[in-house]
Design a protein around this nucleic acid. Structure first.
Lengths: 150, 150
DNA sequence: TATAAAGAGGTATTCTATATGAATGTTTTA
DNA sequence: TAAAACATTCATATAGAATACCTCTTTATA
């Protein structure tokens, strides 16, 4: 059982942007701070932009910023959006070969369990993640360059 | 988000054994009915035996059978046992590189969500899976050879 | 208006966990 | 003692994910 690095990176991007908010950040900058692939991160950011969690600005002085306040960004919804099409078990997918499928209740139980997984994460927002207790530590860990002190 | 085929196969084995109970089944037979890799299935059965869900008997006329009544075999516990060591996100594993880890609450939230996933599945037993509404259909779908009629 | 910064997007390659295959060993019973 | 069945190890294949590379488009500003 695992979630993709794609989703992992998406959460890291949101954390970074939340810490720097309202200052924008660039993909290059975020990739360097986490020491992760810039190319992969580009696709993650593009997806986050498509589903409306961030706003991107092209060109010189462009960058990425949160599309709304951290309090209004739900962690579970991010994960749900990025993971909902994943094939948890073979019978969720298109080339399912399991002969039991027509009469098997497991698929419903797995769908239910996956829903509970998402619901559990939906208790938290980006603001909770960047709660005051952690905020300064995280800014330090990421060495985030601030124009105006937080 | 996905569970391994290993766990998937484990559940199929349990279903098969439950349907045939108390008759034993062989690995060869189960692999053929589901049309899946016999080699992989051997490892799955071996694991199921190690963790006590099935009893295996070697030698001629040997085979596999449930270790206890289907009512006492919990679906969620099977999944939990086989998936609990999986690395859901990078920070769950040994070569975690994420600099945020010391101050990041996400790992707790993910652990909680995973726990809820398991708890959700733990509502069901093997007996529920083989409930009378489905039982005969499943036996037909698998063309299970019965010595004594169920 | 030219240039540089930044994201968009396609393609190709690499990586890795999982799955599969193959071969041999061990146990049991007819 | 031979056949049936699980046990165990090692090797290989595969698919999905991750990464790299390259070109295109957009935009601010010098």
């Amino acid at each position: 059982m695992m979630i993709t690095r794609f989703t992992d990176y998406a959460l890291r991007v949101m954390a970074y942007l939340g810490l720097k908010d309202p200052e924008p950040a660039t993909i290059k900058e975020i990739a360097e701070r986490y020491d992760i692939s810039k190319n992969h991160l580009m696709k993650v950011v593009h997806m986050l932009s498509e589903i409306g969690f961030v706003h991107t600005t092209r060109g010189k002085n462009g960058g990425i910023r949160l599309s709304r306040a951290a309090e209004l960004i739900n962690i579970g919804q991010i994960v749900r959006t990025l993971e909902q099409h994943s094939v948890l078990v073979e019978c969720f997918g298109n080339n399912n070969q399991c002969v039991l499928t027509p009469s098997c209740r497991l698929k419903h139980w797995f769908a239910e369990a996956m829903e509970n997984f998402f619901l559990s994460l939906e208790k938290y927002t980006l603001a909770d993640l960047l709660h005051e207790d952690q905020q300064q530590d995280m800014i330090r860990l990421l060495a985030i360059p601030m124009k105006s002190p937080a």
